[in-house]
Design a protein around this nucleic acid. Structure first.
Lengths: 208, 208
DNA sequence: ACCTGAACACCGTTCAAGT
DNA sequence: ACCTGAACACCGTTCAAGT
């Protein structure tokens, strides 16, 4: 008698999402197609629709998969963790800004909310600060991710920054253009992100 | 003798962008297809490629077209102008977060940079504050636009907020979940945006 | 120079047919 | 129940042919 066992590599929501993250990391956002995912899993085109609702669902779950591995003992560490995760997976930066209710965004909201609450914020002050912090972090993430996508290595990055600096310099003959142009050439996204975070924390919560 | 004159409605970059904005406002981002634009202009599919580089170019120029009409005498007025423009044209919210160097983003950067400079910020303090402010405004814009897209009228908006509040309430049994859930139900995106702007300004610049 | 529209090389999703 | 893969209804972009 032949006993039919499940293939050990049977499809599942988890395996589909895992494969999607691999493809997104290797090929970028444009590389994630249903054809690529099903080819990677060696199955038929329509197979994944038994496990995920569609491509949007796939992207939301993939982004949450990345964000679920971010932790931080305090607020700055958590924010840096989010930044570094997006630096490592640039496609997440765009995805987080597509839908405010997706699991990954709620996860970030909860993390920041908890830390702000621990710092003594309650009521309106808490939700105002949480909302602003989430907006700042997601906005900075999208900006950084878009830049990282366009300038993946140091040489491309230099050319990219020079181009922005040039546009700034020509934009205003006044002192503003020159100042910003110079700053852009010395620019470091991660340090800039932290500087913005500190501005925000200074305005939102009293020093501990 | 027959003198051939140019059709008065000859194609031009301006007319193509204008048509694109109309389609985006009426049909949303998904409605902007090359087929829709060329049908609207009663011309052949390939005609627009003589005037714009492609669909990305079209979206960047359309967003800049909207942002070019925003003005503000002071920083808060400018920020509110950006918010209101995105409220009126939700597709701009997503577009601004796609590419940090696009004309509309540089335009916003210059506006904020000028106002921050006028408030006495220079050097690193200026670029840190400008960068953080742009990130906050673009992030908040994306969040608001995504919500507005999903909940266009008051009834849909209520259902939407109730759903978020519900997710929050069930998320944490502690005081945080209940507080945030209650705040969300009373939530007003525009007021929230202003509250976040004030947090930011408190941290970035001394009161005038 | 500009426009036309068929052709090309893709998409995401559905669904009858299989196991 | 789950999987297969052809079919469907779309895309953006190119390009030979027209004017």
């Amino acid at each position: 008698m032949v006993v039919m066992t499940r293939r050990s590599d049977a499809l599942s929501r988890e395996r589909i999402i895992e494969a999607s993250i691999e493809i997104l990391d290797k090929e970028g956002e444009g590389g994630l197609t249903v054809r690529a995912v099903t080819a990677h899993l060696a199955t038929g085109r329509g197979a994944i629709y038994h496990h995920v609702a569609g491509k949007d669902d796939l992207l939301e779950e993939a982004a949450d998969g990345v964000m679920s591995r971010v932790a931080g003992d305090d607020l700055r560490a958590l924010a840096l963790g989010v930044f570094d995760a997006i630096d490592a997976h640039p496609w997440v930066g765009a995805q987080l800004n597509r839908e405010p209710l997706q699991p990954a965004v709620l996860r970030i909201w909860k993390g920041f909310g908890t830390h702000l609450h621990a710092r003594g914020l309650t009521g309106r002050a808490l939700t105002d600060a949480g909302s602003a912090l989430v907006s700042y972090v997601l906005g900075a993430a999208a900006q950084h991710a878009a830049g990282a996508r366009r300038a993946p290595d140091a040489t491309a990055r230099r050319a990219y920054l020079d181009r922005v600096a040039g546009e700034w310099a020509e934009a205003g003959p006044g002192p503003l253009g020159a100042e910003v142009a110079a700053a852009i050439r010395e620019h470091d996204d991660r340090a800039q992100f932290l500087a913005g975070l500190d501005i925000f924390l200074r305005g939102a919560v009293p020093p501990e």
